[in-house]
Write a protein that binds this DNA or RNA. Sequence first.
DNA 1: GTGGTCTAGACCACC
DNA 2: GTGGTCTAGACCACA
Lengths: 133, 133, 133, 133
Amino acid sequence: MIRIDTASFTPFYEQVKAQLKARIRGGLLRPGDALPSIRDLAASLLLNPNTVARAYRELEQEGLVATRKGKGCFLSESASRLAGRGGLEGLHRRLDDAIAEAESMDVPPDQLKDLLDQRLRLRSRERHGRKKP
Amino acid sequence: MIRIDTASFTPFYEQVKAQLKARIRGGLLRPGDALPSIRDLAASLLLNPNTVARAYRELEQEGLVATRKGKGCFLSESASRLAGRGGLEGLHRRLDDAIAEAESMDVPPDQLKDLLDQRLRLRSRERHGRKKP
Amino acid sequence: MIRIDTASFTPFYEQVKAQLKARIRGGLLRPGDALPSIRDLAASLLLNPNTVARAYRELEQEGLVATRKGKGCFLSESASRLAGRGGLEGLHRRLDDAIAEAESMDVPPDQLKDLLDQRLRLRSRERHGRKKP
Amino acid sequence: MIRIDTASFTPFYEQVKAQLKARIRGGLLRPGDALPSIRDLAASLLLNPNTVARAYRELEQEGLVATRKGKGCFLSESASRLAGRGGLEGLHRRLDDAIAEAESMDVPPDQLKDLLDQRLRLRSRERHGRKKP
DNA sequence: GTGGTCTAGACCACC
DNA sequence: GTGGTCTAGACCACA
């Protein structure tokens, strides 16, 4: 469900936070849903439980998560404010990063679009076999 | 010329390196060109000289930069291997980031392309007035 | 400057946060002031640096503290919003706690006032020798 | 009868213990009186029975409570030692908390007394209408 | 079983 | 020197 890029500079707990938020925005996680237990998620991501706990704690401080002692962590009702179309900002930011990179290398917009197409095809080929393209 | 994003998690020296490389790839910097002095660049970026020095040192280890004592740092001849359209890995990586984000939000490929288009138009509108489109 | 009550149930990092906030409200710490370094404060309080770091980090998330990499932690300008008379809430809360306790034991208000007087005299006697009463 | 502050850091079972003790000291509970059953109290406080059981168990270890199998929990005769004005430690502690807070904010003792007066008046005004002052 | 706090100690980026 | 992240592992409160 979540993937950690160990080569990235962005901290593990931030990667967890960002991917959970993305799933909330995308509607895959909804208010009231239980998050995976800290220990389970840590084990499946090969992370230390403290690292996952920090991600959950910060999401709680942002009001997205409610933790009930001894029961687990749940998406709070106010998590719904992330849902829906507001969540395209993250995507926008990433696309803008790519555009900035392209500009600094004098890659014209049309070529950038071609490149996106190319990467998308590559990605769909990767999935091939698990799911029909 | 170079901009440091202090909010980003990627280390300052990596930001300096990446942006210098991008300018080499884009042909804005060419073999033999002088790089700004460590102290000047540090001052203009509000960084500690050690940080800039580290960026230069690592570029030197990669063979892209040659330091001539007392004269400064220059792009070595081998920097030309980055020039042209060879160095698209950075762009690929950024596009892949966007694709991953889109997938995690269940945004289909076609919509992602539309979004790229939209951001490109936004960007060109921003430039309008400073430079002819 | 700060005292940790190891017998209390309130977490160490919360005690550090609360006492720093009280000092901001009381005007003893002002925007721009440097906080003691994490390691120093941890050493003087016999705490683990991680514990102090957590207190500082949460204060930063609340916008009261700004940390500059390699330089230290400083009170941000917005810390001034805590300053002045707004800060009596903490005191009010503690007095209300005492009042509630007194009520539950059927201790009348006048006796509560006498008790406060008595504890204040005890406290000033403790300080005797360091400072004139 | 008992209120649990879920935001507080003091453990639930300690809150239960403290409030029962306060009622003993205030004479509202007397030796021989039956305590509410563990399950009932747990249900009314929205706590797990284990938590209430722990509070009762510790009170029993302190000799304040005697459990008679199948009949429930009762205040033991030795509970009378808490009765009357003997148990002011709790109040002392709370007043000392307030004094410490005041000191850390440079609030002088006289102002602290004024504040206590002020909160007491506020409290009596709150009760007004339910009970004659 | 759940989450929460704390310690100890490693490694890194930055000044 | 500064703070930041991460790991490993202990102990506790709560269900």
